[in-house]
């Protein structure tokens, strides 16, 4: 028999997990987000509905390219407790089961991200949408590594939420340390796209360079570190595009 490190045996663990899964499938039907076709007129209802959608979005993004971590589960749990169901115990329990299911066996459908983001766009004003993107960025940042898949999903989410690219990259630069990136994707980090010509690329690199170079002597150590890392990425990109 295989022993688990914490002393429980594997069979018992599997039984409990399957039971939790079945329970989840049951509760999922209870907390399933309303489809976009549902017409909500009250702004308070819209806000709450957007928050439910945010949990789905957050869980999906957290699972992109890696397993969701305990820290990320905690971030989502706090969000649920604070923003969705501070008092409603049954709803909270249903959500906890959902979190566990994602931790143990759910592989989310990443294509749903765009759809959910579109639904959120219909429900919230700019400030609300900005907050949700901010929350999702902080969520992926709670883990040690931010995967490329997560960055792609965040970028797509920003597009669907109609948060302009410059603001998106400003948020990214503030919230996620470059050192956490699995791979330095210059398209996402610097906004360089394949359709840009050499002059456009150089101009963009120049602007990014000036911006981050001015932050190298910032009084906050984390900002200084981010600035140094960004300068390295910009210099690499410059070598790559000029040679």
């Amino acid at each position: 028999m295989v022993k688990m490190s914490d002393g429980y045996n594997l069979n018992l663990f599997l039984v409990l997990t399957v039971q939790a899964g079945l329970l989840y499938l049951f509760v999922r039907s209870l907390i399933k987000p309303a489809s976009v076709s549902v017409v909500l007129t009250n702004q308070e209802e819209k806000n709450l509905h957007a928050k439910h959608l945010t949990v789905d979005l957050a869980l999906t993004i957290a699972c992109a390219g890696k397993k969701i971590s305990v820290l990320q589960l905690k971030v989502i749990k706090n969000y649920i407790e604070k923003d969705i169901a501070p008092k409603r115990t049954s709803e909270k329990i249903a959500y906890y089961l959902k979190l566990l299911s994602y931790y143990f066996f759910i592989s989310p459908d990443f294509n749903q991200c765009s759809l959910i983001s579109k639904q959120i766009f219909e429900l919230l004003n700019f400030a609300g949408r900005y907050d949700i993107l901010d929350f999702c960025m902080r969520l992926v940042c709670a883990d040690d590594v931010v995967t490329t898949k997560q960055l792609v999903l965040l970028k797509d989410m920003a597009e669907q939420l109609e948060i302009e690219n410059e603001r998106f990259r400003l948020m990214l630069g503030k919230i996620i340390p470059v050192s956490k990136y699995e791979v330095n994707d210059i398209e996402i980090i610097l906004g360089i796209t394949s359709d840009m010509d050499a002059e456009e690329t150089n101009s963009l690199l120049g602007k990014e360079y000036v911006k981050w170079n001015a932050r190298v002597t910032n009084s906050t150590p984390q900002i200084r570190k981010q600035a140094r890392d960004m300068l390295e990425i910009i210099a690499k990109a410059k070598s790559q595009f000029t040679h």
Partner: peptide, 17 residues
């Protein structure tokens, strides 16, 4: 030192701009 020299180029660009 290629990447370090790229940074000197970037700074030169920035000063000229």
């Amino acid at each position: 030192i290629a990447e370090l020299l790229s940074r000197t180029d970037l700074l030169l660009d920035a000063a000229l701009a």
